[in-house]
Design a protein around this nucleic acid. Sequence first.
DNA 1: GCAACAGATATTGTATACAAATGCCATCGG
DNA 2: CCGATGGCATTTGTATACAATATCTGTTGC
Lengths: 225, 225
Amino acid sequence: MSRASDRAYSAIRNMILSGELPAGAQLGEEALAEMCGVSRTPVREALRRLEADMLVGRTDTQRTFVADWSLGDVADSFELRSMLEARAARRAAERMTDAALARIRAANRALSAAIQQPVPDVAGFLEGNREFHAIILEVAGSRRLTALLCTLIEQPVVLRTARHYSREELRRSHAEHEELTAAFARRDGAWAEAVMTSHILRAYHAYADAHRAHLDASDQQEAAE
Amino acid sequence: MSRASDRAYSAIRNMILSGELPAGAQLGEEALAEMCGVSRTPVREALRRLEADMLVGRTDTQRTFVADWSLGDVADSFELRSMLEARAARRAAERMTDAALARIRAANRALSAAIQQPVPDVAGFLEGNREFHAIILEVAGSRRLTALLCTLIEQPVVLRTARHYSREELRRSHAEHEELTAAFARRDGAWAEAVMTSHILRAYHAYADAHRAHLDASDQQEAAE
DNA sequence: GCAACAGATATTGTATACAAATGCCATCGG
DNA sequence: CCGATGGCATTTGTATACAATATCTGTTGC
């Protein structure tokens, strides 16, 4: 994280996720280098990584721009994520150890505590959630599965999804984690796979609903202007 | 392909796949630059791409080395590939057009012609096979699915698998393509998914058998020395 | 007025120099 | 003899200069 290319990566990534760099914006290496306080070399490396993350795209002539994530792209991403995480859950259930199970339960307790605050602690929820899914991937023990999922999760969407979660949705998410844990405890791969599929697809629909609501609000605002 | 970084990528990739750079070998940027006749800058870029392909790995201190593909890694890779290609086949079946179907049939005819030569034309087989799978991905219409599969196919393994195919195995592969085509013609997603799963997993076992036979031969050779 | 061209401008690609870090090895102390 | 430590060699990381390429713009010819 202290290397210049890592700082550039984080900085550009944050600017994209925060919307400071809007979708479709051209990304000049020189300009980014100045913003990040580094030279073009680490910026180029950061852009390549962001390209692999599909957060930026490239024209046929090597110009870089901020990728725009249509709802279709998000659906695409969630569909793949549901499939891959479900597979991970199945493998994890088949390989589960008591030690890992204990860690999963601990992550769930932390997550539960976060959502039971008077004002739900979204950061705490996200951290517990991340830990939960990370342990599953670890137990699943497939380096390639892990690598593929890394390009799908932690994308623009996950954060925004959770932000829009109501307390009820947060609780439901926790309940699904509990059911997954039960499946892990029984070493039931098919059960874990099914619950995980449902868990991810529910998150997708929560996102899609929030997205549509947002669009409607925008339309009304435009109509009023 | 004319850019220096592309040449470096191809050159290093070929050296890895041909075994000229053995698994585990350290990859010094300077040395590679000299081999490829370019400077370190494009070599660094090539190494990052190869890292994404999982053809090279990195130590905790940023030293690059040739990744070693154990049979377990190959199994891991094939398992994911079967899942993702099967999903692609399902989507393709649901979205199939008559035009795409015609192209798929043409690719299959080319493939069939290649394996019916007096001496099977492995290069022709591979090209027809590649085209066949590429059209399916195209029709599936998921950019992310395409991106993920690109990191799984065309890896050390595909080539070697086909090289060891007997004429009977080549014919069987063609027969599976024909069945897939039938599923596409009926727009039957579930059928296409099932056939594709079987198609990829059969290829895996063909590879694994050849791999084990190779290991046995090596053992005998070592014992004789 | 529009299209095509040419030069100017901006952007990306590559090479190289230097800085920072890592690894190696020999020496020193126990 | 073994392990730790310090310095040397090697390797990677970054900055910068320059080359190649693409884009933009104004002009010219139709």
